Amino acid sequence: METNNLEGINTLRYSDIFLAMYFNDGMSCLHRNHSHVLVYMYSGELEINERETVTRLHKGDCAFIRKDFGVQLTKRAYKGEQFKAIFLMFTTRFLREFYGRLDKNQLPEEVRRSKVSLRKLPSNRPDIVSLFESMTPYFDSGIQPTEELLNLKMAEGVYVLLHTDKSLYASLFDFADPWKIDILEFLEKNYMNDLSLEEIANYTGRSLATFKRDFKKVSELSPQKWIIRRRLEAAHALIRSGVRNVTDICFEVGFKNLSHFSKIYKEKYGSSPANSISY
Rank of each mutant, 00 (worst) to 15 (best):
E50P: 01
F64L: 00
K79Q: 15
R93P: 12
I86Y: 02
L57G: 08
Q106G: 12
L73H: 11
K75L: 13
D103W: 04
T91M: 00
V71N: 11
R101E: 13
K75R: 14
Q72N: 14
T92V: 08
G100I: 00
F98C: 09
R51F: 05
C62V: 05
F90T: 01
Y78E: 06
K75T: 14
F69G: 06
R93I: 15
K59C: 12
R76M: 11
G70D: 12
G70F: 07
L102N: 08
K59E: 15
E97A: 09
R56H: 09
L88K: 02
G60I: 01
L57K: 09
Y78H: 06
F64A: 00
I65P: 03
K75D: 11
L57F: 07
Y99W: 05
K59F: 07
F83L: 09
L95R: 00
V71G: 14
F94H: 04
T53W: 08
R93N: 15
F90P: 02
Q106P: 07
K84S: 08
I65A: 04
G70Y: 09
K67M: 04
E97Q: 09
A63V: 01
K104R: 13
E97G: 07
A63R: 02
G80L: 07
F90Q: 01
D68W: 03
N105W: 08
V71R: 09
K75P: 08
T91R: 01
K84W: 09
T92I: 10
H58C: 10
R66L: 13
G70P: 05
L102M: 11
E50C: 05
Q72T: 12
F64Q: 00
F64D: 01
R66W: 12
R56T: 10
L73E: 10
Q82H: 15
K104F: 06
G70L: 15
D68M: 02
Y78F: 11
Q106E: 14
I86T: 06
A63L: 06
T53K: 14
T91C: 00
R51C: 03
Q72L: 14
F69P: 02
K75A: 15
L57T: 09
R101S: 13
A85Y: 01
K75F: 14
F87L: 13
R93H: 13
L95K: 00
D68I: 00
K84T: 03
G70A: 14
N105S: 12
G100T: 01
G80W: 10
F83M: 15
Q72P: 04
F83W: 10
K59D: 11
F87S: 13
F64W: 00
L73I: 11
F69L: 15
A77E: 15
I86V: 06
Q72V: 13
T91H: 00
I65Y: 02
F94L: 05
R66V: 11
A63D: 07
G70Q: 10
R96G: 06
R96M: 10
T92P: 06
K84P: 02
L73K: 06
Y78S: 03
E50F: 12
E50L: 08
K79W: 08
V54I: 14
R51S: 06
Y99V: 03
F90N: 02
D68A: 03
F87H: 10
D68H: 03
D61T: 04
N105V: 05
K79L: 09
E50A: 11
D61A: 08
R101C: 11
M89Y: 10
F69T: 11
F87E: 13
R93M: 14
